[in-house]
Write a protein that binds this DNA or RNA. Sequence first.
DNA 1: TTGTATGCGTTATCAA
DNA 2: TTGATAACGCATACAA
Lengths: 345, 345
Amino acid sequence: MKQSRPAPTLQDVAVYAGVSTATVSRCMNTPAKVTAKTRTRVEDAIETLGYAPNFGARAMAAQRTMTIGAVIPTMENAVFAKGLQAFQDELRQYGFTMLVACSSYRPKLEAEQIRALVGRGADGILLIGHERDPAIYRFLDAQKVPTLVTWAFDDTAPRPSVGFDNRKAMAKLAQHVTKLDHRHLAMITAPVATNDRAAARLAAVGDVMDAEGLVRADLFVVETPYSIDNGAAALDLILQQRPETTVVICGNDVLAVGALRQARGMGLSVPDDLSITGFDDIDLAVVTHPLLTTVHVPHRQMGRAAAQMLADMVLTGAPATKVELATTVKLRDTLGYPRQSQAAR
Amino acid sequence: MKQSRPAPTLQDVAVYAGVSTATVSRCMNTPAKVTAKTRTRVEDAIETLGYAPNFGARAMAAQRTMTIGAVIPTMENAVFAKGLQAFQDELRQYGFTMLVACSSYRPKLEAEQIRALVGRGADGILLIGHERDPAIYRFLDAQKVPTLVTWAFDDTAPRPSVGFDNRKAMAKLAQHVTKLDHRHLAMITAPVATNDRAAARLAAVGDVMDAEGLVRADLFVVETPYSIDNGAAALDLILQQRPETTVVICGNDVLAVGALRQARGMGLSVPDDLSITGFDDIDLAVVTHPLLTTVHVPHRQMGRAAAQMLADMVLTGAPATKVELATTVKLRDTLGYPRQSQAAR
DNA sequence: TTGTATGCGTTATCAA
DNA sequence: TTGATAACGCATACAA
């Protein structure tokens, strides 16, 4: 029963309207080049026939799709939602359509998605973070598809990017932590092997510990995929293994919120008994109690900037550049003095 | 500089491997029909050339894309994320790829996205809710694209759907509310004009009020788009206009969380001074304090079921059916007795 | 302003 | 097992 009669084509519209296919095509792409009269006739035909241009055919003939592909690690939490929304909105201004795919933080799957997007004719590709199999970059080069990396800024990476320096950003937060005299730090992070943002954030904490005369190796680290429940479980583990911990630095807000829930569930007072910090400043961060101390990331600005740069790269072959955006530490209520120094206050 | 040399095609691979294009095509689609020797030769060629099949051309020739399009109202909050993730995962089992588009709750935009997805050759379409311009359904019919409605179940709607009955679901919650003797109800809802789920939830509250001997018209209603801040602002308005309100029923968790934040910010104790309820049971609902009383929606189950049904419709022309899923009221901590009856307890 | 004709990259049919 | 070739639906250079 599927496709009992095929969907209407340009040809059908042309016949119905009594014009040539070229004219119908012009009506859709360069309306100015067509008489108002014939145009309305064609538009009527399109409407009554329920015609929609075949994208594949159009792409093949025109050699461009006005489509940008984006591959993000997940949609499960709101980490990328705001930025992506801004990216899409801005892209629309340039006449582009956005296509999203989700890799679930799995490199293989990401590679697959990238190929799929390119095969679909994406004129440009947006990726999260620099780290991936070089073969993918080679492929992208072979296909001549402009590619922009975001959510990370790294001077040493060869790719154009618009994002923030994850290492610097987390370092700023970690400095606040050590300034408060915390000496027993723990960190909950996403698996760092294939996540350069997570790796940079972890490294940053080590950097600061070094600088403050602490022993980097003393940082107790739990690696676990981003989820509220995982954050909670990780905190549990930390308090079992390192009960002396006074502050838990989390790789993102999702983990932090989970840790916070767990801490309160165990009857701990945050931040009096235990401090917790997040990263990203997503909506979640301002609905918890106490409000989460975290690193604010300029999601919307980043999305907009990425859209502008990528659109330029595609449209005008603009040279690839690197843009660094600033982050700010949001000192809210989950970071305080460590237990030990309570008396000293 | 764009496309200085065009991306490699089937032709290029064929030449490089010293075979015909037909053979290369077979290697990709029906490897069993090709000698192991020639296959490896072709695969080498593909690898070194960085070849990726042109999706448009393939779609045009094969008349199918193994792609399902989904149009959701927003990615800004996690309302649809979990369900969509499950939908995608299940779809993969069937060999389908999912394409997502976002309408931002704007009907015009949604229509545009649907056309775009269909034009891209989507073999099937997933939509949220029944309510939309009949012209869209006509278009979908003309294009012979199987379409499935989800996130809503409505016996009277002509389309196949898999979802829950928003009216029944909210009614169950509202009954709990009235059972607790609340007499001054207010509701914060998304604009109902173009949102049948929101409309059904609002209607449900009225139904229950009628049944309980209250006056439906006494329900104080604030319509505002889903966002935490809007929820907060709405609560502010409610307490100004109807200070006697003892319970605020929110159309979803996002609004409820905003209302909760505002209430606490104003120094109100929830639920002692004011009760608040949500809908959806997204992650947000279990990180607030107090924990949000809400309606649990089977996101994952719904996503999976939708994928199965839509895949069947596309693959086997399976008959369209309607599936109703159950919701459950999650009585957590934000719903309590009204102030007035505190003493009576 | 409109029409004609060609090619885009792939699959599938048919021969070999 | 492989190769030649005809669609597939559209945009565009060129002709009228």
